[in-house]
Amino acid sequence: MNKVMSSDELMKYINNMDSENSVIQFSIPGKGRFTLVLQEEDNQSIEADIKKNPQLEMMFKESAEQYKNGHGVTTSDLLKSLSVKNFS
Rank of each mutant, 00 (worst) to 15 (best):
M1C: 10
K3Y: 00
M5Q: 10
M5V: 12
M5K: 11
M5W: 10
S6Y: 12
S7C: 13
S7E: 13
S7I: 12
D8R: 15
E9T: 08
E9H: 08
E9G: 06
L10V: 05
L10Q: 02
M11N: 12
K12T: 07
K12R: 05
Y13D: 04
Y13A: 05
Y13C: 05
I14V: 03
N15G: 03
N16R: 04
M17E: 04
M17W: 02
M17A: 05
D18S: 02
D18R: 00
D18V: 01
S19E: 08
E20A: 07
S22D: 07
I24S: 00
Q25W: 06
F26C: 10
S27I: 06
I28H: 03
G30A: 11
G30Q: 11
K31W: 11
G32N: 07
G32E: 07
G32A: 08
R33G: 11
R33H: 12
F34V: 05
T35E: 07
L36E: 10
V37G: 00
V37E: 03
L38P: 00
L38C: 00
Q39L: 04
Q39D: 02
Q39G: 02
Q39A: 02
E40M: 01
E41N: 11
D42W: 03
N43A: 08
Q44F: 06
Q44M: 08
S45I: 02
S45D: 05
I46L: 14
I46V: 14
I46F: 14
A48V: 10
D49T: 02
D49Q: 07
D49A: 06
I50V: 15
I50P: 04
I50D: 06
K51V: 08
K51D: 03
K51L: 05
K52Q: 07
N53P: 02
P54R: 05
L56H: 03
E57H: 06
E57Y: 04
E57S: 07
M58H: 10
M59L: 12
M59G: 07
M59Y: 09
F60S: 00
F60A: 01
K61M: 14
K61V: 14
K61Q: 14
E62K: 15
S63N: 12
S63A: 13
A64M: 09
Q66M: 09
Q66G: 06
Y67W: 15
K68N: 12
K68D: 11
K68Y: 11
N69I: 01
N69G: 02
N69E: 01
G70W: 00
G70S: 01
G70A: 01
H71T: 03
H71E: 05
G72R: 01
V73L: 09
V73R: 11
V73W: 08
T75E: 14
T75N: 15
T75H: 14
T75V: 15
S76Y: 13
S76E: 13
L78Y: 15
L79H: 10
K80T: 13
K80Q: 15
L82C: 07
S83H: 13
V84Q: 09
K85S: 12
N86A: 04
S88R: 11
